[in-house]
Design a protein around this nucleic acid. Structure first.
Lengths: 200, 200
DNA sequence: CCCACGTGAGACATCAATGTCTCATTGCAG
DNA sequence: CTGCAATGAGACATTGATGTCTCACGTGGG
């Protein structure tokens, strides 16, 4: 029996469809299921065999986004070294998921319902813990709450993805823009704090 | 003839409807036209007499948002004094429009079409000019482009409106959160730069 | 009083997206 | 070769939002 091949094929196809959908919906959130299917190179019927409907597709994208974020958090080793460096690693690791996050960010369907994926709360908590650690160690200012810093980080990542997508900023500047604005702000400082970077 | 009364009544009603719609759509972007009408205290028929359809309504909201932003920019006197203070004034003036901006920000219908309101470009240009002025005067760092700083400011305002709406941050902290993160970043600095504020 | 006007309520048609079905085709394994 | 499984194409019904219409009501001015 070919069950092994069957499952494997479905899995890889499902993932491919999901990523195509993410790429399309990122810059056209109202795309038709037919357009989503075409973008993935399959028919609407097959798309419907993978995902019961638009709702299910969006939920799957949400799960994928959460999964990628958690992988990024793991890879960034948020507990190691200076908190500021951890933030830089985090932004770097989060970059591949930025487009998907930008889409999910605008899909407020996900948050207005009664039950929302608890994965977001887990992510929020882990990132908030990083900012809290930085505050306790004296690296970060204490007048901005970890909750706000976390939300602002997501907001800046979404903005960064959008501005890169629109072509106004080069993709290679993504990390630097976000991490350095997040950490150092727009003001120029005398302390040799952030001037070192790989810009341009 | 009662034309004066007629026009006046229509104008005030239209504005009231627009603001009710903005408030509702801000936290439920997919609200039905019927819900929008109820929120404004009128019937769907009357709503349709004011705005030809959802498209027209969103366009009107866009125009309102741009109008309020331009008024905020005027009131903030971006050309006066230190650029950092101008940014603080700008955030303060922009706060009343934050919810509406947050809605428009996620309504990517407005930007994917071929023709988009040139008001956004004007606003972008004026705010970019402020950041450019700050860079030329030595106040702002030059490794972050004015275009990115402008986009980031809008992103932070949208994030701030969202986080206030969700109740995780008090409305009174809105200015401080956004302006100080935008200017100073998360890092704690020795230079007596931003510690003075009206926090808590 | 009487009329004009704005309004609310609702009926009705329309339209786009979607859910569901069938059927022919393709490709692959036995 | 033969049959199974997945697919693509398309027909069809459904659903929800929307556009459009009519009609009765009430209110304010002449």
């Amino acid at each position: 029996m070919s069950h092994v091949g069957y499952y494997c094929l479905m899995a890889v196809d499902r993932d491919h469809v999901l990523r195509s959908a993410a790429a399309l919906l990122t810059h056209k959130a109202t795309a038709t299921l037919d357009e989503v299917a075409r973008a993935a190179g399959i028919s609407r019927a097959t798309l419907h065999r993978h995902f019961a409907g638009r709702e299910a597709l969006v939920r799957a994208l949400e799960a994928l986004g959460i999964e990628e974020c958690e992988a990024a958090l793991d890879a960034a080793r948020l507990e190691d070294g200076p908190a500021a460096d951890a933030v830089r690693r985090l932004v770097r690791e989060l970059e591949p998921a930025a487009g998907l996050l930008s889409f999910l960010y605008t899909e407020n369907q996900l948050f207005e319902g009664e039950e929302q994926n608890e994965g977001w709360a887990r992510l929020d908590e882990r990132i908030s813990a990083l900012f809290r650690r930085g505050q306790l160690s004296g690296e970060f200012r204490i007048d901005l709450t970890p909750a706000w810093l976390t939300e602002a980080l997501f907001g800046l990542i979404a903005s960064g993805a959008y501005v890169v997508l629109s072509g106004r900023v080069a993709p290679k500047d993504f990390h630097h823009m976000i991490a350095e604005l997040m950490l150092g702000g727009a003001l120029r400082t005398e302390s040799a704090e952030e001037p070192r970077n790989e810009e341009s």
